[in-house]
């Protein structure tokens, strides 16, 4: 059983870490665009980004399951053209996590961009700096708390993911079986001790992450 435990835990952490890194890369341009946009379509895009906050995870999981299957055009394209069979794979639950945790990354980043005075980016422009240089050397270094917040919330939220993973990934040990699903599975089989091992681990990890976040933001507030 201990090997099961470590395998599941490794998979859970790998999923959370991959989701956090990919969402940072995807979320930054999206949040930057949303924060600066004056388009009339912005509310629409913001609603799409925030949708996973209010939808039951099973709804997201259900539609992603359909989208990845060969019964839809998208699914056939993924499977036949790209060779991506996503259902019941790690890549599939990763894709689901990206959708599910999107608002937890984008919203703090968007707020971080909005908090910066507009004149900072403008001053960089009058100094001849490109948008990329401005983003990397002026904007991001001045919104570290927002970056930390987005990354930590995304990581923690992905650790606790259940419905989406269950719908797309099922419960395949070593491939899609993450801790929250393992807990459910162990309880179903009346293995309360094993369920407790997973549950306690998640509890401690989640608590430690939040303590670290608040400790960092307190230190940051004192420094600035």
């Amino acid at each position: 059983m201990p090997s099961d435990y470590w395998q599941t835990l490794r998979l859970t952490l790998a999923l959370a870490a991959c989701t956090t890194v990919l969402l940072l890369l995807l979320g930054l341009p999206l949040a930057y665009g949303l924060a600066r946009s004056r388009s009339r379509l912005r509310p629409l895009l913001e609603a799409v980004v925030s949708l996973p906050l209010v939808l039951p995870p099973t709804v997201i999981g259900f539609y992603l399951l359909l989208a990845f299957s060969d019964s839809t055009a998208l699914g056939r394209f993924l499977i036949n053209q790209l060779g991506l069979s996503l259902n019941f794979t790690f890549a599939g639950i990763l894709a689901g996590s990206l959708v599910y945790s999107l608002p937890f990354m984008v919203q703090p980043l968007q707020a971080g961009f909005r908090q910066l005075p507009r004149s900072l980016a403008e001053a960089a422009a009058t100094l001849g700096k490109s948008r990329g240089t401005t983003l990397w050397r002026v904007l991001l270094p001045n919104m570290k708390p927002a970056l930390l917040n987005g990354a930590v919330l995304t990581f923690a939220h992905t650790l606790g993911e259940f419905g989406v993973v269950l719908m797309i990934g099922g419960n395949l040990p070593g491939r899609t079986r993450v801790a929250s699903i393992a807990i459910y599975d162990e309880v179903e089989s009346l293995n309360y001790g094993q369920a407790n091992a997973y549950a306690l681990t998640l509890l401690v990890v989640a608590f430690a992450i939040l303590v670290a976040l608040y400790w960092f933001s307190k230190r940051d507030a004192r420094l600035s």
Binding site: P117, E122, N142
Partner: peptide, 11 residues
């Protein structure tokens, strides 16, 4: 350009 709020880079 010198901005009214100076716009110095805080970092």
């Amino acid at each position: 350009f010198v901005f009214q709020d100076y716009a110095l880079f805080p970092n």
